[in-house]
């Protein structure tokens, strides 16, 4: 994979996906209890654990608490998650005693589609009864989005993923914006950041609309607008993301190479 859309012409020393993963990993503070989805979030969370956040406690919905996988898990119940975990509990326990009880600081989610308020669709594209595309469904995401103190979303910036109107609201972000999430009575603050392969979006403090606040090196506002299905709000003076450090890149590539070697195949993951 090479850096493309929105990136400069010169051969980049890292890919847009790597930039996205590194940027997302930096959002995770050391010591946080983090409920992690498979795929991109798991990659970023484990990079954080390898770099600045060795003390973060990774929870996967299969019931592993304090998971310390040495390679990336291919599925939510992968054996590497249990192997060095602090504890392994049942699925009802992870959702009831951990997530619903407020023991999770950060929910780290992927998505199929997102709207301007960070609401997430992973259910269907098109009509529910006669969908154009049937997606996997909710998994753990609705309650992670509801109960984690804050939510980080990772999603590649594409027009078909960043849509004006979701076919289906699977997990609630900031609802219809403003104070509408508060009216639902959820304990968590909702999405505090959306990391894409082009930049960083954060909710406006008043309207809760996701606003482009930083661009990754080489990405442009025009490129981001082009890849967004709504009229993207852009901060007055969007910053530029610090490019990946050598160490971040080395550790990320090392993690992926180890995963590939251990699996003898792909490192693809889906969001659950």
């Amino acid at each position: 994979m090479t850096a493309n859309r929105g990136m400069g012409e010169a051969a980049a020393p890292y890919t847009a996906d790597e930039m996205m993963t590194v940027a997302a990993s930096r959002e995770l503070r050391d010591g946080a209890v983090c409920f992690v989805g498979i795929g991109l979030p798991s990659e970023a969370a484990n990079l954080a654990r390898a770099t600045h956040a060795p003390g973060c406690v990774l929870i996967y919905e299969s019931g592993t608490v304090g998971a310390k996988p040495d390679v990336l898990p291919l599925s939510i119940g992968d054996g590497v998650l249990a192997a060095h975990a602090d504890s392994v509990v049942s699925v009802p326990e992870i959702f009831n005693y951990w997530l619903q009880a407020g023991r999770v600081d950060v929910g780290f989610l992927g998505a199929a589609q997102v709207d301007r308020f960070g609401n997430i669709n992973t259910t269907v594209v098109g009509d529910y009864q006669h969908p154009k595309v049937r997606l996997p469904g909710a998994g753990g995401a609705p309650e992670i989005a509801a109960s984690a103190r804050e939510v980080i979303i990772m999603l590649r910036h594409k027009r078909r993923a960043f849509v004006e109107r979701l076919s289906f609201v699977t997990s609630v972000g900031h609802g219809a914006g403003g104070g509408s999430r508060d009216d639902l009575g959820y304990p968590g603050a909702g999405p505090t950041v959306l990391i894409t392969d082009l930049g960083v979006l954060r909710p406006d403090p008043e309207t809760r609309e996701l606003t482009l606040v930083a661009l990754h090196p080489g990405a442009t506002v025009e490129g981001a607008r082009e890849a967004t299905g709504w009229n993207l709000k852009v901060a007055d003076d969007p910053g530029t993301t610090e490019p990946p450090t050598e160490r971040e890149l080395e550790l990320l590539r090392d993690l992926k190479a180890r995963t590939e070697a251990a699996r003898g195949g792909s490192t693809r993951g889906t969001e659950t």
Partner: peptide, 21 residues
């Protein structure tokens, strides 16, 4: 499943509100 295993008719949780489910 927990409700079923407990021989209760239903379970309660905080969730689903605001979603299309």
């Amino acid at each position: 499943y927990v409700a079923g295993a407990s021989n209760l008719p239903f379970a309660v949780l905080r969730g689903y509100v605001g979603t299309d489910l």
